[in-house]
Design a protein around this nucleic acid. Structure first.
Length: 183
DNA sequence: GTTGAGCGTT
């Protein structure tokens, strides 16, 4: 109740895990019906503030929804409101769960080349076996990329794109996309 | 036209 301590901090939970995602502009929506479209989600979530992007995760093989989705708000406060209001709501007969995403974006497709750190000496920080996050670790230490080469693969503005209000393909905004396809 | 839980592809 008010004024008393929440029992939630009983177990120690650090930020950025499934149990305790840290606030962000990116929301994950889970438990979706496979028939729920990005368009539906957009029209629901857009009520809380401008939405940059909606991404229903598709199965690459069948092209069908995997039943979850990620949305990028322009403002964290809108994301927060949307999360609170929409988690537990029902869409297409499914009760959805909404949380801050713990992953920032789609996995970068593995380029098939070594992308470990290049040290200041021009050597390599070969992180095999370490926790590399999204980074692909080549099994072969023989590949020796130069920093310029590496940039080519890595610095394509994936991270900056979302913050600037357009997506990485520079596609039209959702308003335009969705109006057009209106049957 | 499928339910269970699901944190991501080009």
């Amino acid at each position: 109740g008010r004024g008393s301590k929440s029992p939630m901090s009983r177990r120690k939970r650090h930020l950025g895990t499934r149990d305790n995602p840290e606030p962000s502009k990116c929301l994950g929506v889970f438990g979706l019906s496979v028939y729920t479209t990005e368009r539906q989600l957009y029209s629901i979530f857009d009520k809380f503030g401008p939405v940059e992007k909606v991404q229903v995760v598709l199965d690459s093989k069948t092209g069908k929804s995997r039943g979850f989705s990620f949305l990028y708000f322009e403002n964290v406060k809108d994301a927060a409101a949307a999360k609170n209001e929409c988690s537990g709501m029902e869409i297409d007969g499914r009760r959805i769960r909404v949380d801050y995403s713990i992953t920032k974006r789609a996995h970068t497709p593995t380029p098939g080349i070594y992308m470990g750190r290049v040290t200041s000496r021009g050597g390599y920080d070969r992180g095999y076996g370490g926790r590399g996050g999204d980074r692909y670790r080549s099994p072969s230490p023989r590949y020796r990329p130069r920093p310029s080469q590496r940039r080519d693969y890595y610095d394509r503005g994936y991270d900056r794109g979302y913050d600037r209000g357009y997506d990485k393909y520079d596609r039209p905004r959702y308003e335009d996309r969705y109006e057009r396809n209106d049957r």
